[in-house]
């Protein structure tokens, strides 16, 4: 049975805190772009961008990254993921919902590099559930949730799931 471990309010707060931490760490929002990893990472990226805009009254570019062809288990590894923004020399915040083995992030970094040469890449995740298989660490974490490998973490976002929550099952 699914158990809600982060409710809507806590999820909102986590995103708010990540946003403030991004400003703290980057000393502002100059040169910042946000790249969300499909699917839920994109919505989280947009929420962060929206918050930055409310706070600083400035539009931050947001891009979607489809990493399906970069996965290390992908059969079709030919086509390149297209980003519709320029990341050369930018401070990129890469955003995903859950950080687990680190393989998705590795693929995302490959896809990013195929699109340009960012000045810095930081990683923001809503949930870090542990069990890393690669040397990857998030710079901004909404919530650390220790899990067993058999457990599943579901992040729900209002835009597609009708509700904001993190469930464990």
């Amino acid at each position: 049975m699914a158990k809600e471990i982060v409710d809507a309010m806590a999820m909102q707060r986590a995103l708010t805190r990540i946003t403030y931490e991004i400003i703290e760490k980057n000393k502002g929002i100059n040169n910042l772009v946000i790249v969300g990893i499909k699917t839920r990472g994109v919505f989280i990226a947009e929420r962060i961008a929206q918050r930055l805009q409310q706070l600083e009254n400035a539009q931050i570019p947001v891009a979607q990254l489809d990493i399906s062809t970069y996965r290390d288990d992908a059969t079709d590894r030919g086509s390149k993921a297209e980003l519709d923004i320029d990341i050369d020399g930018k401070r990129v915040i890469l955003v995903d919902d859950v950080l687990y083995t680190g393989r998705t992030i590795r693929a995302a970094l490959d896809a990013l590099m195929d699109n340009g040469r960012p000045a810095v890449v930081n990683l923001a995740v809503l949930v870090d559930r542990g069990h890393r298989e690669l040397p990857i660490r998030a710079d901004f974490v909404g919530k650390n949730i220790p899990t067993a490998a058999a457990e599943r973490i579901n992040v729900n976002v209002t835009e597609i799931d009708g509700v904001d929550s993190v469930e464990i099952r």
Binding site: M9, R13, T16, R17, N144, P146
Partner: peptide, 19 residues
């Protein structure tokens, strides 16, 4: 009360602990 949640989540996050 959200403000207290925010504060304590910041404290916990900075301690690097599991919340």
């Amino acid at each position: 009360t959200q403000a207290f949640d925010e504060f304590m989540e910041m404290v916990t996050a900075r301690r690097g602990g599991w919340l």
